[in-house]
Amino acid sequence: MSAVVAAALRFALVALVLAFLLVPDAFAPLLAPFAPPGGAAIYDRASLLALTVSHLLIVVAAIVPAVAISVGLAILVSRPIGAEFLPLSRAIVNIGQTFPPVAVLALAVPVVGFGAWPTLIALFLYGLLPVFENALAGLTGVPPAVAEAARGSGMTGPQRLLQVELPLALPVILEGVRISLVIALSTATIGSTVAAKGLGEVIIAGLNSNNLAFVLQGGLLTGALAVILYDGLGQVARLTARRG
């Protein structure tokens, strides 16, 4: 029963977001009460669809290399050759996670200027930590009996990694990717304060012009996107866990 309800809710949310992005003007009457007298009810300085696409592109462009590099590093420090760096890398991950994303974003601006770059850098750096942490947990958490059996059946190091350790660690790694993506989506919203194209622009324009209709549509849209993405990746992770 509850699975059906969840599926229906999921579908309704996606449909609602798509409808809002494709024909935003149809929602104008709903938002008009929140707009100031004479102000626009729907953000009109850029198309909401274009902003959403640009927002998602920045997130993907930052997270894909972040995932590749952090999984690579996790593999490196979980091998004998990099074992010496294991405690240090754990400590760096712990310390790194105390850095607020806004601070990372703001500190990147003096180095690379305004626009998409500081956002990309902050998203990339912040995306590294959860994936690295989870990949490490997944790779070092392979049950000793399984690792022993793989070694006993004559598998070489790379074979064990590709056929045993990575598949077993995949659900945990995906959970890390999920956390990274949600943080990135959120931080990309703040990216609008440094002139990156994204949905944060709508919220900030609303805050600056006292237009609650803008604040609400930007806020609800990014909130809905985050929920859809988080929930969707959760489904994917569950599928891989079941198969593995």
Binding site: F34, G200, L207, T222, D231
Partner: peptide, 21 residues
């Protein structure tokens, strides 16, 4: 609660202006 946590901070701060106002 974890769905609530996924909502970007600026978005949540903005959305809350309406009910609190």
């Amino acid at each position: 609660l974890s769905l609530l946590q996924t909502i970007p901070s600026i978005a949540l701060f903005g959305i809350l202006i309406v009910p609190l106002g």
